[in-house]
């Protein structure tokens, strides 16, 4: 329908809108699935859910820095995460969340591309918006690639290869992690990807609230500040681990 409109736009009758009545009948439920806003709501909800996941994941990872008890602690944590049923369910929801967030983002990006088929010859977007807000797709892709690598390196090896065990009989994931973080390029990549995550969160955190309709002159500045703090602290926490492990093992 939209295409015929564009072709017929010279036709004055076109303004009289025969198209509207059908559209009026759109029910609430389908509006919540098909509309552009719905895609944004899902983006925001999955995004906030993944923010929560980051906190949990970071808390677990920090056991890597627990000094002498790090090996036993981290391995026990790994065991718990992979065998306790509710956690397993949660982790599959998280994988789905990541996929949904990525696919939804891709769909939105495609629609956005279509909305501007011809680009400007001269653009100056830096004067009206921040870089990260305009590059959520690129940042998200970087993060997604990282997740794939990350899962391949740790999750895949844990699940599908035979690892040595520690004194408690748990698989020695700690050893795998330390081995990986002895490689400079891997540490560098990890830190870089955490920087991407930081930028992604810097815009994404606040943006999720805006999309869900939470914007108020009193509270929005606080949300933005919280988002800023979150976008610095979480990736920083993740990035410190490989650096610390690398330095300790020099």
């Amino acid at each position: 329908m939209a295409n015929t409109l564009v072709h017929n736009f010279f036709d004055p009758k076109f303004v009289t809108l025969e198209i509207i009545p059908n559209y009026f009948k759109m029910s609430g439920a389908s509006a919540l699935i098909k509309s552009s806003l719905a895609k944004k709501y899902w983006m925001a909800l999955t995004g906030l859910f993944l923010c929560f996941f980051l906190i949990v994941h970071l808390a677990g990872n920090l056991t890597l820095l627990a000094g002498d008890s790090a090996r036993a602690g981290f391995n026990a944590y790994t065991k718990f995460m992979t065998s306790f049923v509710p956690i397993k369910v949660a982790s599959y929801i998280t994988y789905l969340g990541i996929l949904f967030h990525a696919v939804d983002g891709l769909l939105l990006t495609l629609k956005n591309r279509k909305a501007r088929p011809v680009k400007y010859a001269y653009e100056k977007p830096q004067v009206n918006s921040i870089w990260s807000s305009r590059n959520m797709g690129v940042l998200g892709t970087a993060i997604f690639v990282f997740i794939v690598l990350h899962m391949g390196n740790f999750w895949f090896r844990y699940k599908f290869t035979t690892l040595p065990t520690d004194v408690d009989g748990n698989f020695d994931m700690y050893g795998v992690v330390v081995e990986s973080f002895k490689m400079e390029w891997y540490v560098g990549l990890y830190v870089l990807c955490m920087a991407a995550l930081a930028f992604h969160l810097y815009h994404g955190f606040w943006s999720a609230f805006q999309t869900l309709g939470v914007n108020h002159p009193k509270y929005t500045p606080a949300i933005k500040k919280l988002g800023f703090g979150f976008s610095i602290l979480i990736p920083l926490g993740f990035a410190i681990i490989p650096i610390a492990v690398y330095v300790m093992n020099l």
């Binding site: 004055p12 009758k13 303004v15 009289t16 809108l17 025969e18 509207i20």
Partner: peptide, 13 residues
């Protein structure tokens, strides 16, 4: 009224 079809609008005329 345009949406009801009671006004036929001719802009740029």
């Amino acid at each position: 009224q345009i949406s009801k079809g009671k006004i036929e609008m001719f802009s740029r005329h």
